[in-house]
Design a protein around this nucleic acid. Structure first.
Length: 191
DNA sequence: GGTGCGATTGCA
DNA sequence: GCAATCGCACCA
């Protein structure tokens, strides 16, 4: 079986988020729907780690919504934003340490679909809150080894849409594949 | 039980 | 530039 199709295992997720984030770039997001499997190479992610990050859902401490962020790495955290769009996160790190990585963009899983932007991505991959807390090593949603982006192709920028977060808004916690055609956000944020 | 708002997007 | 649309955190 070819290396690119190898499924990522729990050990991949149970590491510090800053280690996992760049390692997610170029990995294949896989979503089983009906008898088909949607696949798309991840191009852009953002780290939300700890309770001191004002932009993180974990900032107020543990609540019902953010509970999956406090779990051990290896599950999905999916929430509804603006009552309109779903956002997919990969939960990382160890039990009790809230950390999640927002998957902001991937290559289109089917021709004509658009998975650039967190809301568009969940729509393209048919992901909603039914997958909140779902295992990432199960049969509904998972990651495969894909073709990891080499370190030389990875860039870091500030995160998007969190201007209210003070100093945290300036931290470079967004990771992208440089020059990738499917990045989201303002052009100035794409390197 | 009431209120305010968001890790976004698409359209005017 | 702004409306859409709703779960939920927070306060009373």
């Amino acid at each position: 079986m070819n290396e690119a199709r190898r499924r990522l295992t729990l050990g991949f997720y149970r590491r510090p988020s800053l280690e996992v984030a760049p390692d997610l770039l170029g990995r294949e997001l896989c979503r089983s729907v009906g008898r088909e499997v949607l696949r798309g190479r991840i191009a852009e992610v953002e780290v939300y780690d700890g309770t001191r990050d004002r932009a993180s859902h974990a900032f107020p401490g543990r609540t019902r919504r953010n509970a999956p962020m406090f779990a051990r790495g290896g599950i999905a955290y999916v929430y509804l934003i603006y009552g309109v769009h779903h956002c997919l996160n990969v939960v990382t790190a160890e039990e009790g340490h809230p950390a999640a990585i927002l998957i902001r963009a991937a290559e289109a899983p089917v021709d004509g679909a658009n998975a650039a932007g967190p809301g568009r991505l969940t729509r393209a991959f048919s992901i909603d809150r039914e997958l909140d807390g779902e295992s990432l090593v199960g049969s509904r949603i998972w990651l495969e080894a894909g073709s990891p982006a080499p370190a030389s192709r990875i860039r870091r920028t500030a995160r998007i849409g969190i201007d209210y977060a003070g100093a945290w808004a300036r931290r470079r916690l967004r990771f992208v594949i440089a020059g990738h055609p499917d990045l989201s956000g303002p052009r100035s944020m794409n390197v």
